[in-house]
Amino acid sequence: MSGTTVRAAGCVLWRRTEPSGELEICLVHRPRYDDWSHPKGKLKRGETAIDAALREVLEETGHHCVPGARLPTVRYLANGRPKEVTYWVAEATDGAFVPGDEVDRILWLPLDAARTHLTQPRDRALLAGVCPGGPS
């Protein structure tokens, strides 16, 4: 890999449904790429990874969240440049989704359905940090 590494951060966002308490994972649809992924985005100058992750969740899903365990950092090439994304498991608290240019839809899906619906295998691998009984 060559070039400056693009640093980004995001969250595997989860909630419990009412009244069953079933675990659901939030996926975002990005029309630019026509893909389904976890909310994430590039760090702004001087921003910490956790601050970027929480900002991106709010910007892309409209939800505030409480971060939990840090997940493995994901590294891959994006447009020929190395990219490094730091993730956390995060519980959604309050908020409401408003479609925008960057993210036009979100889905809340049970864990197995979310795993199947994600476009990239690297995003599916992050769900190993979330077990059926709740985040680990």
Score class of each variant (00 low, 15 high):
residue 2 S to R: 14
residue 2 S to H: 14
residue 3 G to C: 04
residue 3 G to P: 07
residue 3 G to K: 03
residue 4 T to W: 02
residue 5 T to S: 05
residue 5 T to P: 01
residue 5 T to E: 06
residue 6 V to C: 02
residue 6 V to N: 06
residue 7 R to L: 06
residue 7 R to N: 10
residue 8 A to M: 06
residue 9 A to S: 07
residue 9 A to W: 05
residue 11 C to A: 15
residue 12 V to R: 02
residue 13 L to Q: 01
residue 13 L to T: 06
residue 13 L to F: 12
residue 16 R to Y: 10
residue 18 E to M: 07
residue 18 E to V: 11
residue 19 P to E: 01
residue 19 P to I: 01
residue 20 S to C: 10
residue 22 E to A: 12
residue 23 L to Q: 04
residue 24 E to A: 09
residue 26 C to A: 14
residue 26 C to S: 08
residue 26 C to L: 13
residue 27 L to I: 04
residue 27 L to S: 05
residue 28 V to E: 02
residue 28 V to F: 06
residue 28 V to K: 05
residue 29 H to P: 11
residue 31 P to Y: 09
residue 32 R to C: 05
residue 32 R to Y: 11
residue 33 Y to D: 09
residue 34 D to I: 12
residue 34 D to S: 13
residue 34 D to R: 14
residue 35 D to R: 13
residue 36 W to M: 12
residue 37 S to F: 00
residue 38 H to P: 10
residue 40 K to F: 15
residue 42 K to R: 15
residue 42 K to G: 06
residue 44 K to C: 05
residue 46 G to S: 07
residue 46 G to T: 05
residue 47 E to W: 00
residue 48 T to K: 00
residue 48 T to D: 00
residue 49 A to W: 03
residue 50 I to R: 03
residue 51 D to F: 00
residue 52 A to F: 00
residue 52 A to E: 03
residue 54 L to Q: 05
residue 55 R to N: 07
residue 55 R to T: 09
residue 56 E to C: 07
residue 56 E to G: 00
residue 56 E to V: 03
residue 57 V to D: 02
residue 57 V to Q: 02
residue 57 V to L: 07
residue 58 L to A: 09
residue 61 T to A: 10
residue 62 G to P: 12
residue 63 H to G: 01
residue 64 H to Q: 13
residue 66 V to L: 11
residue 67 P to R: 08
residue 67 P to K: 04
residue 68 G to Y: 09
residue 69 A to S: 13
residue 70 R to F: 05
residue 71 L to M: 15
residue 71 L to I: 11
residue 71 L to P: 04
residue 72 P to T: 11
residue 74 V to D: 01
residue 74 V to C: 08
residue 75 R to V: 13
residue 76 Y to R: 01
residue 77 L to V: 14
residue 78 A to I: 09
residue 78 A to S: 14
residue 79 N to V: 09
residue 81 R to W: 14
residue 81 R to V: 06
residue 81 R to D: 05
residue 82 P to V: 03
residue 83 K to V: 11
residue 84 E to L: 03
residue 84 E to Q: 12
residue 84 E to C: 10
residue 85 V to C: 05
residue 85 V to D: 02
residue 86 T to V: 10
residue 88 W to E: 03
residue 88 W to L: 02
residue 88 W to S: 03
residue 88 W to I: 02
residue 89 V to A: 15
residue 89 V to K: 04
residue 89 V to M: 02
residue 90 A to Y: 01
residue 90 A to V: 09
residue 91 E to H: 07
residue 91 E to G: 14
residue 91 E to S: 15
residue 93 T to K: 05
residue 94 D to T: 15
residue 95 G to D: 02
residue 96 A to R: 15
residue 97 F to L: 14
residue 98 V to C: 10
residue 102 E to G: 13
residue 104 D to C: 11
residue 105 R to Q: 15
residue 105 R to N: 09
residue 109 L to V: 08
residue 109 L to D: 01
residue 109 L to Q: 06
residue 110 P to Y: 08
residue 110 P to M: 11
residue 110 P to F: 08
residue 112 D to W: 00
residue 115 R to V: 08
residue 117 H to G: 00
residue 118 L to D: 03
residue 119 T to G: 11
residue 120 Q to G: 01
residue 122 R to S: 04
residue 124 R to A: 09
residue 124 R to E: 04
residue 125 A to G: 08
residue 126 L to K: 13
residue 129 G to A: 14
residue 129 G to M: 07
residue 130 V to W: 00
residue 130 V to D: 04
residue 130 V to F: 01
residue 130 V to T: 10
residue 132 P to H: 02
residue 133 G to N: 08
residue 135 P to M: 06
residue 136 S to M: 10
